[in-house]
Design a binder for these strands. Structure first.
Length: 209
DNA sequence: CGTGTCAATACGGATT
DNA sequence: AATCCGTATTGACACG
């Protein structure tokens, strides 16, 4: 949740600006492009550092290479020099980690799912990220791993439950048949043998044979 | 730290 | 082919 209206507006404008200015923008559509510029202008006005949030705008198969907005910079992944201030004027910026960064984080996560401060700092240095970013990445990764595992467990339990239910049904049926045998006409063992899963008691077996 | 959530980005498929 | 739309992914943040 955004903390104040300015952020909301800035966020909306950034989103709108990007939405209009990137993937879905018909290159010819100057009107939309202009809207994008206006939105981004507003966004940057409200949130000057928001520009960092819109790096890497080379995306999408819609083949829009880059918005012609000079204030959108290339993908920096830069470490800010401020004291790990994660909220840049309250603006939530979102970078995409490079493949190398992601895979190194993944590898590191495989080795240990939590990091001590030294490991965190080392990894951050190595990846040219802020320690906060590494920390958040690991938090998210743990949470999502857990979520996936929960989902897997849920499915397993569901299957197990279904198996038990089937087995229960089968046993009930078997019991019913056995009771029928007890009171039913003789010789019942022949009929019983048609029910595939029933096992005959040794006495009955002798009788049949 | 875990959890819930937001929001930017990516992507596949449908539509024009 | 370009565009739109729905959805998935994921980085970031707030809160307890």
């Amino acid at each position: 949740m955004e903390d104040n209206n300015e952020e909301c507006i800035a966020g909306l404008c950034l989103g709108l600006g990007l939405g209009l200015g990137s993937g879905h923008v018909p290159k010819k559509n100057k009107q939309k492009e202009n809207q994008a510029v206006v939105c981004l202008d507003l966004a940057f006005e409200l949130c000057p550092k928001g520009e960092k949030a819109v790096n890497n705008v080379n995306h999408h198969h819609d083949k829009v290479e880059r918005i012609s907005l000079e204030r959108i910079h290339d993908y920096p992944n830069e470490k800010s020099t401020d004291s790990d201030n994660s909220n840049n004027n309250g603006c939530r910026k979102k970078l995409r980690l490079s493949k190398d960064q992601s895979s190194m984080l993944e590898n590191s996560f495989k080795q240990h799912s939590t990091l001590n401060p030294v490991q965190k700092q080392a990894l951050a240095d190595q990846l040219n990220l802020k320690t906060r970013q590494v920390e958040v990445w690991f938090q998210n990764r743990r949470a999502r791993t857990k979520l996936k595992q929960t989902e897997v467990n849920r499915e397993l339990l569901k299957k197990h439950c279904q198996n038990l239910s089937d087995e229960n049904k089968r046993l009930k049926k078997e019991l019913q048949e056995l009771r029928a045998v007890k009171v039913g006409p003789s010789p019942p063992c022949i009929q019983l043998s048609k029910t595939a899963t029933l096992t005959m008691c040794s006495l009955c077996e002798k009788l049949v044979n």
